[in-house]
Design a protein around this nucleic acid. Structure first.
Lengths: 351, 351
DNA sequence: CAATTTTACGCAATCGATGCCAAGACGCTA
DNA sequence: TAGCGTCTTGGCATCGATTGCGTAAAATTG
């Protein structure tokens, strides 16, 4: 099946003009007489002419589309970011093409390869947990393709970066738990290779230190796929609960880590917060309806998407190569609910 | 900033051949000698030649990309559908371009307009709640653009359609509530104009009738934006709870209706299921962690996306116009948890 | 050895739109 | 009236890749 569109040639033929004249008339060129312009414009509107963007892309070597690589759109944090990106992209006439890596290095490489060969004008990138080798990214960057990193940032390339204050977010979360009487605070971390993991771990350590709590390596667990796989979280938690000196609270530093941690507690009949307090780093929009309602560090995801998209489009449209790069750091917000209630709090039945 | 790619001309110049020879060598044409082919292939690999898909699109009048219109990617149901679509699309060399209508008629029209002008080869479409006028769709369809409808189906066009058995899903949900002792079962429905709303309402009515319960028009509420706006749900619930003869259970026939219903109960301190039982039509992957765990009718969303994508790609690649259309109806699954427990069940505190 | 076929390649048109250059039709001035 | 500038418009190349057609050279045939 095919779909025939109206072209500039059809207009030219119908009006007995040349294609160049029609083209110029449509672009309101000064060299075309007002009468001709009017005739062309009227006819174009009448037959609903739409310029073929593919032909334009070929000619202008730009597609007015940007590639967006996230780990998973089903994740609220990323879907909010995408909404922010789209709000800017559409207003500037760009199309955002979204691709999910599903935390797979291979899928990330294939997607970026595919999109760059389809001539996206730039990338908005949050790398997968599995990505330790950045050559597919540096290669595109070296060839001059604009890339802006957000959330999970790549040090290997020098470009604009948009993140939240992960250190402070983690610090606030940990300090809050300490303040509410928790003494053995464990951290469920994402892949060790991610920038966000390192920053959040550092905030966690600083908060412990400031609260005069000892740092214990045993209480740090990493889940290579960011909690996407339940087994990973289960194993980490099994190890934590098997410790002689068990943790009494968990700082779960990603969405899926948090929800799978709660599944674990439910399965093992661990009571939150009585048996174990918890605070998540999460943008889920259902945290208020969970059992119990979840305390979280929330990120300004929509804002982050907007800023990243603006920076990228500026780079794309810049006449000269950009050499000064920004490092935007957005504030997080601490939202306190029942899951991190003071240790002496009444027990709440889980589930 | 720009990004220069290797072209077939570069290869031709470097090897002292014509572009036609290079093109044919790369496509393994029989009229090229094995030696020349080898030289071209080796050199192409060496300089990492990738054909320019934009040039191909222009020539072949197809872009190998399909447009996907959903109301919101942050909705689990739709993100699962998208995963299903992508799994098929990528395996067949297509790119899925996702667009969110956010339940807005205007955004739906703009997105479809934009994507069709960017030469998508077809559409996978689930209309917005606001869409009552289908002329933007029929127009594209009449011009020969392949469209497959899923979930929210448009009667105005004759094409493949993929849905779940909404009648049976709603019937099962309602019958389950009736069986558990609820006698005044209300339905929170989506926009009246949607196919799914009508089908689910019909299933609800039939189940009431089979359970010898009276149908009461007062217990049917429609939320024009599918519960996306809290106020809508709040108003519907206010009306229901103001009735002389209040409902004792709710069948919430969409994701957002369900979660905003639960917010409402929490705010008004209504206990679920003691004050009001509830079952949702939902693909949320957190229903087990809610307070209380939520009973749901679940749809095979991933499967639905796969089937819709397969049907669309078949249409796109069909040599002759397709005139026989399929109407696939997938089964739903009833998952029973605490929110619809028998009426005499122990009270569970909300929140 | 001449005639014919086969092999292997190049030329040029094509897709839709743009933009440089040329050219025809004017009017105006010297 | 020749010469010049101005105003409109058309012709053609271009972007990257494909493909029908033409053809020189090599191979085959009688």
């Amino acid at each position: 099946m095919k779909f025939e569109a109206v072209t500039i040639k059809d207009i030219a033929k119908a009006l007995g003009l040349s294609t160049s004249t029609v083209s110029r008339a449509l672009r309101d060129s000064y060299e075309i007489s007002p009468e001709t312009k009017q005739v062309v414009l009227d006819y174009a509107k009448q037959i609903n002419y739409r310029p073929n963007p593919i032909a334009l892309s070929l000619k202008e070597k730009r597609s007015r589309s940007i590639g967006v690589i996230v780990s998973e759109i089903a994740n609220s944090f990323f879907s909010q970011i995408i909404n922010g990106i789209e709000s800017i992209a559409y207003s500037k006439g760009y199309n955002a093409i979204i691709s999910q890596s599903m935390e797979s290095y291979e899928r990330e490489v294939i997607s970026m390869d595919f999109l760059s060969s389809r001539s996206v004008d730039g990338f908005l990138l949050s790398v997968s947990t599995e990505t330790h080798d950045f050559s597919h990214i540096t290669e595109l960057h070296d060839r001059g393709l604009p890339i802006v990193c957000f959330d999970r940032v790549v040090d290997a390339i020098n470009t604009h970066k948009v993140i939240v204050d992960n250190f402070k977010g983690a610090y606030d979360a940990t300090a809050h738990l300490a303040q509410n009487g928790y003494r053995r605070i464990a951290i469920l971390g994402n892949s060790e290779y991610l920038s966000i993991t390192k920053e959040r771990l550092a905030g966690y350590k600083q908060a412990l230190s400031d609260a005069k709590l000892p740092f214990d390596e045993e209480l740090v667990k990493h889940c290579p796929h960011g909690g996407m796989i339940y087994k990973e979280v289960e194993q980490a938690m099994n190890e934590l609960t098997a410790l002689k000196h068990k943790p009494d609270a968990i700082f779960a530093s990603a969405d899926k880590l948090t929800t799978n941690f709660m599944r674990y507690c439910k399965a093992r009949r661990l009571l939150i917060p009585a048996d174990m307090g918890v605070i998540g780093f999460s943008n889920l929009d259902l945290t208020d309806l969970l059992s119990p309602p979840l305390s979280v560090v929330r990120q300004p995801a929509f804002e982050m998407g907007k800023i990243a998209a603006e920076l990228l489009i500026n780079m794309i449209e810049s006449k000269r190569p950009v050499t000064e790069f920004e490092n935007r750091i957005l504030p997080t917000e601490l939202i306190i609910r029942e899951s991190s209630a003071k240790k002496q709090a009444r027990k709440v039945k889980v589930g």
